[in-house]
Simulated scan of single mutants.
Amino acid sequence: MKILVDADSCPKKAMMILIELAGLYNVPLLAISSFNHQIEGIEKIIVGNEPQAADMALINKTNRGDIVVTQDWGLASLVLSKGGNCIAPSGYVYSKEKIAFMLEERHIKAKIRKSGGRTKGPAPRNKEDDERFRKNLELLLKQVNS
């Protein structure tokens, strides 16, 4: 088991929590990002800046039982279909039961934006997001390690 991070969109606070908990649980941590992002202190794979390059590298490295950190609902869906576990940097744990609804919601919002409408974006990151991420990541690590 390992933790893989979609590092192109992972906030620094979440990355610090990942480094701490991966060390505490002795789990390999691998960050995957485009060459536009500089990440220090952990093992990383750098890909080109083509659209979805980091996502494709990440899904190719994911195995059953791995934990993937991403905000990308499409990538989360692929991880779940491979038997992986997936958590957002906000602490939301993706599930097979809800991912189809989330993807449908994303599609509907994209149609609204394409037709000139506006949709609400995510709220700014706060301390509660960090606490929820730490708590739920630790729960995932305990669950997968048992």
Rank of each mutant, 00 (worst) to 15 (best):
Met1Phe: 09
Lys2Pro: 02
Ile3Gln: 06
Val5Asp: 01
Asp6Leu: 02
Asp6Phe: 06
Ala7Asp: 08
Cys10Glu: 02
Pro11Leu: 14
Lys12Cys: 14
Lys13Asn: 14
Ala14Ile: 01
Ile17His: 01
Ile17Trp: 08
Leu18Asn: 09
Ile19Leu: 10
Glu20Met: 10
Leu21Thr: 00
Leu21Asp: 03
Leu21Met: 00
Leu21Pro: 02
Gly23Trp: 08
Gly23Arg: 11
Gly23Met: 07
Leu24Asn: 12
Tyr25Leu: 08
Val27Asn: 04
Val27Pro: 05
Leu29Thr: 06
Leu30Ala: 04
Leu30Gly: 01
Leu30Ile: 15
Leu30Ser: 01
Ile32Tyr: 00
Ser33Ala: 15
Ser33Tyr: 07
Ser34Ala: 12
Ser34Phe: 05
Phe35Asn: 11
Gln38Gly: 05
Ile39Cys: 03
Ile39Arg: 01
Gly41Glu: 02
Glu43Ala: 13
Ile45Met: 04
Ile46Asp: 02
Val47Gln: 02
Gly48Cys: 11
Asn49Met: 09
Glu50Lys: 12
Pro51Lys: 03
Pro51Met: 05
Ala53Val: 00
Ala53Phe: 00
Ala54Leu: 08
Asp55Arg: 11
Met56Thr: 09
Ala57Gly: 06
Ala57Trp: 08
Leu58Glu: 01
Thr62Cys: 14
Asn63Lys: 10
Arg64Asp: 09
Arg64Gly: 01
Gly65Ile: 09
Asp66His: 01
Asp66Arg: 00
Thr70His: 11
Gln71Lys: 15
Asp72His: 00
Asp72Trp: 02
Asp72Ser: 01
Gly74His: 04
Leu75Pro: 06
Leu75Gly: 10
Ala76Val: 06
Ala76Pro: 07
Val79His: 08
Val79Gln: 03
Leu80Cys: 04
Lys82Ser: 07
Gly83Phe: 08
Gly83Gln: 07
Gly84Met: 01
Asn85Gly: 00
Asn85Leu: 10
Cys86Lys: 06
Cys86Phe: 00
Ile87Asp: 03
Ile87Thr: 00
Ala88Pro: 03
Ala88Leu: 06
Pro89Ala: 06
Pro89Lys: 04
Ser90Val: 08
Ser90Phe: 02
Gly91Thr: 07
Tyr92Ser: 14
Val93Gln: 12
Tyr94Thr: 03
Lys96Ile: 12
Lys96Ser: 14
Ile99Cys: 04
Ile99Arg: 08
Ile99Thr: 09
Ala100Asn: 15
Phe101Glu: 13
Leu103Arg: 05
Arg106Cys: 05
His107Met: 10
Ile108Leu: 09
Lys109Trp: 03
Ala110Leu: 11
Lys111Cys: 11
Lys111Asp: 06
Lys111Glu: 07
Arg113Thr: 07
Ser115Met: 13
Gly117Val: 01
Arg118Ser: 13
Thr119Val: 15
Lys120Ala: 13
Pro122Asp: 12
Ala123Cys: 11
Ala123Ser: 15
Lys127Thr: 15
Asp129Arg: 13
Asp129Met: 13
Asp130Trp: 03
Lys135Thr: 15
Asn136His: 13
Glu138Ile: 12
Leu139Gln: 12
Leu139Ala: 11
Leu141Lys: 14
Lys142Ser: 08
Lys142Met: 15
Val144Cys: 10
Asn145Lys: 12
Asn145Tyr: 07
Ser146Leu: 10
Ser146Asn: 11
Ser146Thr: 07
